[in-house]
Design a protein around this nucleic acid. Structure first.
Lengths: 227, 227
DNA sequence: CGTAAATCTCGACCGCAGTCGACTTTAACG
DNA sequence: CGTTAAAGTCGACTGCGGTCGAGATTTACG
């Protein structure tokens, strides 16, 4: 029962993740082969599969480490005194910025989180629970402040906002939105609409309106012209 | 210039797609190898890559054919006389039903549509434009009927509804929603909220409220208990 | 200790998607 | 026609993710 074995296992696991973090960052996920990874970690290829079911899973482990940073940053970024909308936009943009820092990384991550395969389902669930909780906190505080009707269904609202987040992410991969500023404008417009109904934009501050109009114009032109 | 060559090309292309439709339906996308597909289509494996860049692309071609049915069905299903909400729910459920008929098929499709890779971007854009247009029609008619404020930003609303559709799809793959009925309840609740604001559920008909409450309960239990 | 069982490690191996360049068929032109 | 260039076809081959079972290492126990 001397933890020799357990200790070694932890070491090996760490060696694999460390090697993965290094290689994924250096040359990308797709471009890193399992053979390389095994060599870099100083273990046999088969050994890796004793620790992770699949390459994707290593990737998610890597994500978890990275996500610590992202969430810590989020806590700093979300100003509890700001308006509900600004807080929500900050939440969404925090995630989007993070995911978009490495485009390829982000796509795999987003795909796996949004439409998880059988083997990554539970893990992805854990991960997005954290984000959902964050949204819940923000909404809960707003409800206490009276900025949100008391009879709002928070869970439904969370789902709603999560949907908008996924959409914005999607537009960044489909090419409809190409900059973080535009993503932010889209976030703000959508959140506004979600909280204040279909006519929200018409009643919004001028800068939000013009921002949206520009985005709208870009979208229409792009969809017409391209291909 | 005698179209002999062109004609043959069309034949070959058709043979490949036909074989793909047959095999994909029979044994699934992942389980069908390119060697098999080539043999079934009566061509060499390399030849396929003269017609399609990658396996995914054959898949999308297959989708396009299937989608014809789905859209035709959609036109039949969406009752222009029904309330806006029912029409929107019908749109969403039409897509969801279609995508979910073959789970694995649906996941690949949803992933590729929501977070397209470089090579499938344009094609996926075409495909979802059709759905977006459909939503636009429904919303446009509702606006004329006065069921929607005149100052609504239709494009933003379309984006919004599209987001909700993706979310519902996502819940079906993350395991939070497991039946089409529940998906429908979620759709209806979300659409209601999107059109009437955060307090919409509280003002909704009783059956919608209880449906949502049950779904909510299921979700909470599942997330607590599992794993 | 010794030894048997359990656990862990490894790289040869498998099946697959996708490439390559040798080969065949068609088109173009004198 | 004959000849040449272009277009199309093919399956052996490459590199990959993932498996497997033989062998090494640790544990449990007499």
């Amino acid at each position: 029962m001397s933890g020799v074995r357990e200790q070694k296992k932890q070491q090996t696991r760490k060696a694999i993740i460390d090697a993965a973090v290094k290689l994924f960052a250096e040359k990308g996920f797709e471009q890193t082969s399992m053979d390389e990874l095994a060599r870099a970690a100083g273990v046999g290829k088969g050994t890796i599969y004793g620790y992770f079911k699949a390459k994707d899973e290593i990737f998610l482990a890597y994500c978890e480490a990275e996500l610590e940073f992202a969430f810590a940053a989020l806590d700093r970024k979300v100003d509890e005194e700001a308006s509900l909308i600004e807080q929500l936009v900050a939440c969404m943009m925090g995630q989007i910025t993070f995911v978009t820092e490495n485009r390829e990384f982000g796509r795999i991550f987003a795909r796996e989180m949004t439409f998880p395969g059988e083997n990554t389902r539970l893990r992805s669930r854990d991960l997005d629970m954290r984000y959902l909780n964050k949204l819940g906190e923000v909404l809960g505080r707003a409800q206490l402040r009276g900025e949100l009707p008391a009879e709002s269904e928070l869970l439904l609202l969370i789902a709603h906002l999560h949907a908008l987040y996924i959409l914005v992410l999607s537009t960044m991969y489909s090419g409809d939105v190409t900059s973080l500023e535009n993503a932010k404008i889209l976030c703000r417009s959508l959140v506004l609409q979600a909280l204040h109904g279909p006519a929200a934009i018409a009643e919004a501050p001028v800068d939000v309106q013009t921002g949206w109009q520009q985005l709208r114009q870009q979208f229409l032109e792009q969809r017409k012209l391209e291909m």
